[in-house]
């Protein structure tokens, strides 16, 4: 059953976790697709949680992260942000730094 504890558990379960609309290979929202496209440039092995898998995921996620929208990227359990922040960090090389620091690369 999805609740805040499960969200926290999943966030800690992998170095890179993206919560979004749709699955990794069938994103159902442009911003989720963008987040996945950006992360795919860096690594192949990471977790994508489809908030449509269970109606409790989204409210639990929002309560945990304090971020109302998806997608949401977490690296080593830390909220990095949505696809716009990912794009910005990718441009400045900061995203690669965070992934390297998290030993995800």
């Amino acid at each position: 059953m999805w609740n805040q504890d499960k969200v926290k558990e999943v966030i800690q379960s992998d170095k890179v976790v993206i919560f979004g609309k749709g699955s990794r290979f069938e994103p159902m929202c442009g911003f989720t697709a963008k987040a996945i496209r950006i992360m795919d440039q860096y690594l192949a092995d990471y977790t994508v949680v489809n908030i449509f898998d269970d109606e409790n995921i989204r409210p639990s996620l929002v309560a945990v992260s304090g971020w109302p929208t998806t997608p949401q990227l977490f690296i080593n359990g830390e909220l990095i942000g949505g696809s716009d922040i990912m794009e910005e960090l990718a441009k400045t090389g900061e995203l690669k730094n965070k992934l390297t620091a998290a030993k995800a690369l």
Partner: peptide
């Protein structure tokens, strides 16, 4: 941080 900036907008 970017997250804090975006939270202000949210």
């Amino acid at each position: 941080s970017l997250v804090e900036q975006h939270k202000l907008v949210h």
